[in-house]
């Protein structure tokens, strides 16, 4: 049985009722793990509160932050400051320079392109090649696709089709998330897989983008954030004085 993950829920953190509603709906729809977008300066108490809400419905919470840098320099500053605080980091690329820097940097987990204007979506061949080397993933939010209408939807579908094709060409993992800001924009994983067929993702590929791909990213990052992590493939097995009787 697949373990589905929705790494991009965006409730208002201050409104705990909304958080509860969204989390319980996600659990009801069959998600195993959810990522909630937090502000970079989030307090530990808030995280604990969210954790307890998720635990009540047996969901695993992922701490996630979205950066909206205006310059590559701002992105580098944010990454060096917050990388160890969050399990997942997504960069919303609003300019080509930022998109290129984000694709190059191994600390970035997700590349996100919010605009419905095809000229402002920077996931081209060069971006795909860079992202492939840095193990970044292309994140596709479904909420804009569900809420957009007529010509806007057509343009978005067309852009997504091109981006998915490039991602497949360069072996860039694709992750499908809801990007939901309220309960009306959340759908079940199989519904998302059906919608993904609109931009030429096959059902097995879409289900992979909803389960294995995000799970791998989370597991990799959790391992890196663990105190026993030294480098990829190297971890502390035992510390001096940890076993006095040994």
């Amino acid at each position: 049985m697949k373990r589905f993950v929705d790494l991009h829920l965006q409730p208002s953190i201050k409104d705990l009722t909304q958080v509860k509603n969204m989390v319980s709906l996600a659990s009801e729809l069959g998600y195993h793990m959810i990522g909630i977008t937090l502000p970079p300066n989030v307090t530990r108490d808030t995280v604990k509160q969210l954790q307890s809400i998720c635990n009540n419905v047996k969901l695993n919470l992922i701490r996630r932050v979205d950066f909206f840098p205006k310059t590559p320099r701002e992105l580098l500053y944010n990454l060096s400051r917050f990388r160890r605080k969050f399990e997942v980091i997504s960069v919303v690329c609003t300019s080509k320079a930022v998109a290129r820097q984000a694709a190059k940097d191994r600390r970035v987990d997700f590349l996100s392109f919010p605009s419905t204007n095809p000229r402002q979506r920077f996931f081209d061949h060069a971006e795909g090649e860079l992202a492939s080397k840095a193990f970044s993933s292309l994140e596709i939010d479904m909420a804009p696709l569900i809420s957009s209408k007529s010509f806007q939807k057509i343009r978005l579908l067309s852009s997504l089709r091109k981006e998915v094709k490039i991602a497949r060409k360069f072996d860039v993992p694709v992750t499908i998330s809801s990007g939901a800001t309220n309960t009306h924009l959340i759908r079940g994983p199989y519904d998302y897989a059906a919608i993904a067929a609109l931009f030429d993702m096959t059902t097995p590929l879409a289900l992979h983008a909803l389960s294995e791909t995000p799970l791998t990213i989370v597991q990799r990052n959790r391992e890196k954030l663990s105190p026993n992590f030294v480098a990829p493939g190297i971890r502390v097995v035992r510390r001096k004085n940890c076993c006095p009787n040994a």
Partner: peptide
Amino acid sequence: EMVRASIA
């Protein structure tokens, strides 16, 4: 799958 996408 078409019907499912439309319903969603």
